[in-house]
Design a protein around this nucleic acid. Structure first.
Lengths: 134, 134
DNA sequence: CCGGATCCACCTGGATACTG
DNA sequence: CAGTATCCAGGTGGATCCGG
């Protein structure tokens, strides 16, 4: 193993990373707690707010609204208000939002293959290393 | 556009998502603020703590330690202590950790292609939709 | 040299109640 | 129906100092 990874010849430069990406390393909403779920819910087609609340019933409306707003701000979905009574609002993925399923599927494929050893390692070394702090 | 995405025929089931994955939807350290940077730093080969601090000089040692510990707990890297004076500690990626570059590269490729429209949309709709809340 | 300990500010996310 | 308003709790990330 170590023969395949000799000591790195070069020290790492201090400016290896662009300071612009420091606030959030991945500029996509990968760290967002609910964005993945929302995107998956919209994959088959547009949905209204109350439809989304069914599979996301453990999310409060405020948080769901905030998640939808941030996804809208990033151009990943559109929000269409129908001026009716009762009101109706449709959320629909944009092509940009739909393009996110590519990397998302890659992550899911990785998880499907490697999640088991990861969780095993986590459980095994939980007390050995200590409880999680991050 | 909308002709390609007809109204979804089925309502979304209430148990669409596994409750086990609710605490963190992505079980990997994708949401971790610094994990990506650390993994990239270790890609060429093993590094010691102080070497990692050079490109990650905007991370406090406490946080860097916590990040490394969580990655170690998950089996993505190993931590080797050399009982010398002065002490020396080597961090090295495991095959499992190295396998994460696959999905990471997929995400980076997506960002390389689509980041510009995303940031443009974010900037354009910032005041129109409102400041970010999530 | 490699962190641990302590304290703290902020921000995400949540509970509850209420409205156009 | 589709949210908003308000308040609040927990946790992450950070600053600073200290130890082996």
């Amino acid at each position: 193993m170590s023969t395949f990874a000799p000591a790195p010849p070069e020290p790492l430069p201090a400016d290896l990373f662009d300071p612009a990406m420091l606030p959030n390393p991945v500029p996509i909403r990968l760290g967002d707690k609910w964005a993945w779920f929302v995107l998956r819910c919209l994959e088959p087609g547009p949905r209204r707010f109350s439809e989304l609340r069914v599979p996301l019933h453990w999310v409060t409306p405020k948080v769901l609204t905030a998640t939808l707003r941030s996804l809208e701000r990033d151009g990943l979905l559109t929000r269409t208000v129908f001026e009716e009574n009762p009101p109706r609002v449709l959320y629909e993925l944009t092509p940009l939002g739909r393009s996110m399923f590519g990397p998302m599927d890659a992550v899911c494929a990785w998880a499907a293959e490697n999640l088991e050893p990861l969780l095993a390692a986590r459980a095994a070394r939980a007390e050995e290393i200590g409880p999680e702090s991050v």
